[in-house]
Design a binder for these strands. Structure first.
Length: 250
DNA sequence: CGAGTTTGACCTGCGC
DNA sequence: GCGCAGGTCAAACTCG
């Protein structure tokens, strides 16, 4: 099972920012599915013949990479977004960012800020905006991948680095992962999903926000088991999206 | 003085 | 082609 952070944050889900109102709930579902491991894909009722189509759809929707479009000049880096409940706009993630722009967003009272990694060799960018629907929610969208380690975390190695890159957003500063109205956490029939169990997984733990499907897996269900194979050698689409330094296998 | 922020202008892609 | 909106640039400004 691929994790973005660690076991407690396995199902951190990348959510498309609401800047694309045209996105249909079904598209969210595709995103959710694709942002889980292949094993998760296989666990959900996604017909095999639909998977490639979903992947292409994903690239179109989430990466804004028009598939098979000739003459495409600017190829965008893969992007992934986090919705975080926080009073702080610019959440500390272990990297140093330089703000290079700010724009008003249509239909939103809050501006969107643009940041670039201060490392001159690093092309990673991030966008930070507040949700117009819930001002307490900060939407952070990362684009590209860092070619260096974090700064300010001299000890702890890679694990610290990618924890710093994302974990701090959810564990410090009172930040919480947030589910938009359009994508509520799935009601889980699993007995492990008692309030007690949920509380045990830190203050905010998301489950696999894989749509309203009753087949959505709980966090516990996503944990690797001996009976189920680990993710294939190549991470597939997920590997294309999530920088290697941010992923680790459990 | 260097690093980071602000902000208006400009560029680009896309839909009509 | 035109207008719109998102994204980027760069000069001016602020701060330590």
């Amino acid at each position: 099972m691929l994790n973005l952070l660690d076991s407690s944050t396995t199902s951190l889900i990348c959510l498309e920012p609401p800047s694309r109102p045209s996105m249909k709930p079904a598209d969210y579902r595709v995103l959710m599915l694709l942002f889980q491991s292949r094993r998760f894909l296989q666990c959900l009722p996604v017909p095999a013949e639909n998977r490639r189509r979903n992947c292409l759809r994903f690239r179109e929707i989430f990466c804004r990479q028009k598939v098979k479009k000739k003459g495409q000049k600017r190829i965008r880096q893969p992007r992934f977004a986090f919705m975080t409940k926080s009073e702080v706009d610019h959440l500390e993630d272990g990297y140093r960012w330089r703000k290079y722009g700010q724009k008003a967003v249509k239909y939103s009272p809050f501006p969107r800020s643009y940041y670039r990694c201060t490392n001159s060799k690093c092309t990673v960018k991030k966008r930070v905006e507040r949700s117009s629907e819930d001002p307490s929610v900060v939407i952070t969208t990362y684009e590209g991948q860092h070619c260096h380690h974090t700064v300010g975390f001299p000890r702890g190695g890679l694990n610290m680095a990618h924890k710093a890159a994302f974990g701090s957003q959810f564990s410090s500063q009172g930040a919480q992962i947030y589910y938009p109205e359009t994508q509520p956490p799935p009601r889980n029939n699993n007995n492990n999903d008692t309030p007690t169990a949920r509380d045990h997984h830190s203050q905010h733990l998301p489950t696999a926000a894989a749509s309203s499907s009753s087949n959505a897996l709980s966090l516990e269900q996503q944990e690797p088991t001996n009976s189920q194979p680990q993710v294939a050698s190549d991470e597939g689409l997920l590997g294309d999206i999530v920088p290697p330094g941010m992923m680790r296998r459990t």
